[in-house]
Design a protein around this nucleic acid. Structure first.
Lengths: 221, 221
DNA sequence: AACGCGATGGCAGCAAGCTGCCATCGCCCA
DNA sequence: TGGGCGATGGCAGCTTGCTGCCATCGCGTT
């Protein structure tokens, strides 16, 4: 039995001071899962990282960012995500609650954030291969099933009104148009109009494709 | 800056000896993500755990097991999963590669397995709240988007032959039956027969529902 | 050769889905 | 009051999808 160490630091400033060099030393891969963008919206923390990254050769580095829909709530966060996406990062949205912040660099170092006020969070820095590999696999499992940012924005999921959701539920339940319309108190004509609108929204050419898209976008409940 | 410890043990025997009491001490929740069932298929390890769990009140404990499809490969593993499922555990299948083994008990203790021969793996035991909470969130994110075991077995995903997959692709591409049949070199009649078979397999009443199911079961590529 | 069997495909008829056209209704605004 | 407008629903005609029935074909068995 042996004992590895997990370093715990308090606050962004100490993290930058003690682990900043790890960010700059990224060789191949930088992955990150976070429920919000609080850490990076702290101006001084972001600038400190940016300064360190400047000059580094970032061309061969893949950047994967997994965030929850909450990160799209305000316009500042949206534009930040769009910006990193245009700089080559892959951004995906997970409907499930994510950690406050999990960062894995080159599959060697792992940084996790605990809860706490922005700027004063507790972070742990770990290099144990077993720990890092295990968490990395979990990250990938969550990543694989998440929705791409572009698809998420294209689908504009949250803009589905209650009616469309009801139609979606009826379709998903496998009803015929006739019984679905009856259940929703609509005429057959109107119900089908709704279905047609929904399919247009989902950019689907067939009902099968619409079902597929609806599933992809996590509209099933 | 403080330093927590991560305990590393080698092999199932040492894990049982040093951390076995943690399993028996489970109060509310036992979650586990694993790419295979090697650990639990080791007879002595499983028996040791079973012995410790005996007598403990397991009624109020929720058990969540997330495994990859590989865990359904051989019949022994399948029946083991069915058995834990009937004992109240929730079992889900993730199409993405999972860690060799990740266990989180009561959201307080975390045990991760590294690679290595069954029986001789390296395990880490961690109690750092920041680490455990972070990994727990990732687990939940992967869990949320995984497929329930029952649905997975019902769909019998692996038993889809090449033809069915081709049909699935055509449907997903949004082609009409006519053009899909032409592309696949089938008559319209046969193509529709295939679609009907597929829908029966997916237990779908409508094409929309079939699309939904296909998406759920991760058949889209 | 004769047979059985499963897969295929044509045909026909029906069910379901799609959409243009128009009448109607409720509502807001002038 | 009257006009405009969007949402609704009926109708009709068309397309697409669904399936039972039967003929055919290939293949392996007897």
């Amino acid at each position: 039995m042996t004992a590895d160490q997990v370093i715990t630091v308090h606050g962004d400033a100490e993290l930058i001071a003690r682990a900043g060099h790890l960010f700059a030393g990224t060789q191949r891969e930088f992955v990150c899962a976070a429920r919000d963008l609080d850490t990076w919206s702290q101006p001084d923390a972001r600038q400190a990282i940016s300064r360190r990254m400047r000059g580094a050769d970032t061309s061969g580095i893949t950047v994967d960012k997994l965030v929850s829909p909450a990160a799209l709530a305000d316009e500042a966060a949206r534009s930040h995500l769009r910006e990193v996406a245009t700089r080559g990062a892959r951004v995906r949205i997970s409907s499930a609650p994510l950690p406050h912040e999990t960062i894995i660099i080159d599959r060697r170092v792992m940084i996790l954030a605990g809860r706490g006020a922005p700027g004063m969070r507790e972070f742990t820095v770990t290099t144990s291969p077993v720990l890092v590999d295990g968490v990395y696999s979990l990250f990938r499992a969550a990543w694989e099933t998440a929705t791409d940012l572009a698809a998420y924005l294209r689908g504009d999921v949250p803009h589905l009104d209650a009616g469309s959701r009801a139609v979606l539920r009826a379709l998903g339940a496998g009803y015929t148009d006739e019984s679905a319309a009856r259940q929703l108190g609509l005429s057959l004509r109107t119900y089908r109009r709704r279905v047609a609108e929904l399919m247009a929204t989902l950019e689907a050419d067939s009902r099968f494709q619409a079902g597929l898209r609806a599933g992809e976008l996590g509209l099933t409940g």
